[in-house]
C-alpha cells in the first residue's frame, strides 16, 4: 500500500459513501416493509420523517460521488512518478486489475445516484408518495454497487506497489500496440469515429429538441442520450483529446482534467454527466406519467429534464467544436 494523503482521502470518502448508503438503505428497507400511507400511527409519521433523512443523505452521496470521481483520477495522476513507465493517470490505473473497474463503477454509481434523485424529485411532486416503493427498491439496488466500489477501490490502493512496470498513456492508449480496452478505442480509426460522433450528436440533439419543443417525450431520446454518453467518451479518447493536447498520438481521457489544459476536462465531463443523468432520468419517469397524482406535474418535470440534457449536450458540442477549431493540430 502507498500511504499518500490523497490515497487516504479517497479511501475515507468511499468509506463514508458506503456507510451513508448502507444506513439509508436500512431505513429504506423499513419503509418498504412498514409503509402505510393511510395510517396516522406514530410509526408511519416516523417513516415519513425518515424520507427526509434519506433524501438528504442521497443528495450528499451524489455530490460526494462526483467529487470522488475526480479525486480518484487526480490521485492516479499524482501517483504516476511512483511507477516506472506510467506517465499519467491512465498508466497508474493499470498498475493492478482493480483500477479501471473501480473507475467504471464510480461512473455507474454516480449515474445511479443521479437517477435516484430524479425519481425522488418526481415522487415529491405527488401528494400520495406515488413512487415511494420504486424509489426504495432502486436504493436497495444501488447499495451493493456502492459497497462493491469501496471494496474494489480499497483493493486497488492496498495492492499498489511502487515500481511495478505499468503501461502508460503512451502505450495503453496509443494505437500502435493493441491491448486492453483503451487502446481498442484509440485504435478506432479517427475518421469513422468522428463521423459516428457527429452523426449521433446531431441525431441526439434533433430528437431531443423535437421531444422538448413538441412536448412529446419518448423512449428514443433517453436511449440516445445514454448512447451519446458512451460515444462521447470514446470520441474523447479517439480524437477530441488529440486536439486538446495538440499531439497526434496522445489519446488520454484523463490528462485533460489537469492544470496544463486549463481544467477544461472538468467542464466537458460535468456537462456529459449532467446530460446523461437528465436524459436517462427523463426516460425513467416516462412510465409514471399516467399515475393519478403525477398526471398534471410529471410532463413539466420531464420537459425540464429534456431541456437540461439537450442544452448540456449542446454546450458540450460547442466546447468541443471550439477546441477543435482553435487547436493547432491539423489532422
Amino acid at each position: 500500500m502507498i500511504l499518500h494523503p490523497t490515497v487516504i482521502a479517497n479511501l475515507l470518502s468511499s468509506a463514508i459513501a458506503t456507510g451513508m448508503v448502507v444506513y439509508a438503505a436500512y431505513y429504506g428497507g423499513q419503509i418498504l416493509k412498514f409503509w402505510n400511507l393511510q395510517s396516522g400511527d406514530e410509526l408511519q409519521l416516523v417513516l415519513e420523517r425518515k424520507t427526509y433523512l434519506i433524501s438528504t443523505i442521497l443528495s450528499f452521496v451524489f455530490a460526494l460521488q462526483l467529487l470522488s470521481l475526480f479525486l480518484y483520477v487526480f490521485t492516479a495522476d499524482s501517483l504516476t512518478p511512483l511507477f516506472v513507465g506510467a506517465m499519467c493517470a491512465a498508466g497508474t490505473l493499470n498498475v493492478n486489475g482493480f483500477g479501471y473497474p473501480t473507475l467504471l463503477l464510480k461512473i455507474v454509481n454516480f449515474l445511479l445516484a443521479g437517477l435516484w434523485l430524479v425519481l425522488n424529485h418526481a415522487d415529491n411532486l405527488g401528494y400520495d408518495y406515488p413512487l415511494i416503493r420504486k424509489k426504495y427498491w432502486l436504493l436497495m439496488f444501488i447499495a451493493p454497487f456502492i459497497v462493491i466500489e469501496t471494496v474494489l477501490e480499497s483493493a486497488y490502493f492496498l495492492n499498489m506497489q511502487a515500481d511495478v512496470i505499468t503501461s502508460c498513456c503512451g502505450s495503453l492508449f496509443s494505437s500502435e500496440k493493441a491491448n486492453g480496452l483503451g487502446s481498442e478505442i484509440a485504435a478506432l480509426p479517427s475518421q469513422p469515429m468522428m463521423w459516428t460522433f457527429y452523426a449521433t450528436l446531431l441525431l441526439t440533439l434533433l430528437v431531443g429538441s423535437y421531444s422538448y419543443l413538441k412536448g412529446k417525450a419518448g423512449y428514443l431520446y433517453p436511449v440516445l442520450s445514454a448512447l451519446m454518453f458512451v460515444i462521447a467518451i470514446a470520441a474523447m479518447i479517439s480524437f477530441i483529446s488529440l486536439y486538446i493536447y495538440e499531439l497526434p498520438t496522445h489519446h488520454c481521457p484523463f490528462c485533460i482534467v489537469m492544470q496544463e489544459y486549463g481544467y477544461i476536462g472538468y467542464l466537458l465531463y460535468i456537462l456529459l454527466f449532467l446530460a446523461v443523468v437528465s436524459g436517462m432520468g427523463s426516460g425513467v419517469l416516462l412510465p409514471f406519467r399516467g399515475l393519478e397524482s403525477l398526471r398534471d406535474l410529471l410532463p413539466a418535470f420531464i420537459s425540464k429534464l429534456l431541456f437540461l440534457s439537450v442544452s448540456s449536450y449542446l454546450v458540450f458540442s460547442t466546447l468541443v467544436a471550439y477546441e477543435i477549431v482553435s487547436s493547432n493540430l491539423v489532422m
Binding site: 400511507l37 393511510q38 396516522g40 400511527d41 406514530e42 409519521l45 415519513e48 420523517r49 415529491n124 401528494y127 400520495d128 408518495y129
Partner: peptide, 22 residues
C-alpha cells in the same frame, strides 16, 4: 399535525394523509 385516526377535510379536499410538504 396529523390525526392518529379519522379524516380531516378542507374545502372538500381530504388532507388527512398528505405528505408533510403538501
Amino acid at each position: 399535525s396529523r390525526p392518529s385516526a379519522g379524516r380531516v377535510k378542507l374545502s372538500g379536499r381530504e388532507i388527512t394523509s398528505l405528505p408533510e410538504r403538501f
